[in-house]
Nucleic acid binder design. Sequence first.
DNA 1: CAGCATCCGCAGCGATACTG
DNA 2: CAGTATCGCTGCGGATGCTG
Lengths: 127, 127
Amino acid sequence: MLVSTALRESFPDGVFVAGCPSRTVLDHVMSKWGPLVLLALADDEPVRWSELRRRAEGVSEKMLAQTLRTLVADGFVHREARPVVPPHVEYSLTPRGLELAALLQPLMVWMVQNAPEILEGAAASQA
Amino acid sequence: MLVSTALRESFPDGVFVAGCPSRTVLDHVMSKWGPLVLLALADDEPVRWSELRRRAEGVSEKMLAQTLRTLVADGFVHREARPVVPPHVEYSLTPRGLELAALLQPLMVWMVQNAPEILEGAAASQA
DNA sequence: CAGCATCCGCAGCGATACTG
DNA sequence: CAGTATCGCTGCGGATGCTG
């Protein structure tokens, strides 16, 4: 199999190299709230700020804003503000963001399914 | 499509809920060095500590130790120490870790491939 | 409603020194 | 070789208050 070797050979400037750009993207996407926000947006419908805060339960205003800003800057998320009062802003995935979310989703599903068993073992190894 | 809605409905106690166990696993796996170490181990061959440090370029001793400890506790990584002098310790993926790495791999490949274009756009939006 | 600005505590992380 | 122990700082991230 040798997937990591294959990965390293096919991408000599890949994730494993310190200066690689992918490290930055990695940190953005794998940040504490990145995956949650990305998946919360993986609807066909645009999602509003307040709805996002509810979906990514536990996120603070600051962290949501910060996460959204980097995701927008990276071109994963599209931000559309309608100039009305009260303000109405909608977030949605760009095509690039959709690609990413598609790759993220099976990972998250797997985690949710396996998390209980995993933490059970971890707690046991504590004792 | 509605993948996030589907995700939320099929897993009412899923990633989106604050207290969910999957949040803990998420944080372990998505930590700064988690994905790197997991993929660095995705060989069929066991990998030694010193080799791991080289593969996950930039990781400090402390962070490698910490990351490995949580990954072992979560049952993703198997640690085998042979009682010889000088010490010889090998790390490898458990079956569970292999499942996870298989899901992680396409994501990392995608990131490495798209990172340059992504950061280009991000830099442009800076100006 | 959808943010931004500010303050601040604490833990994440790096650097260094030491051990079996 | 494969770690552990300790120190010190940086910056993440929460809380609060303010604006268009």
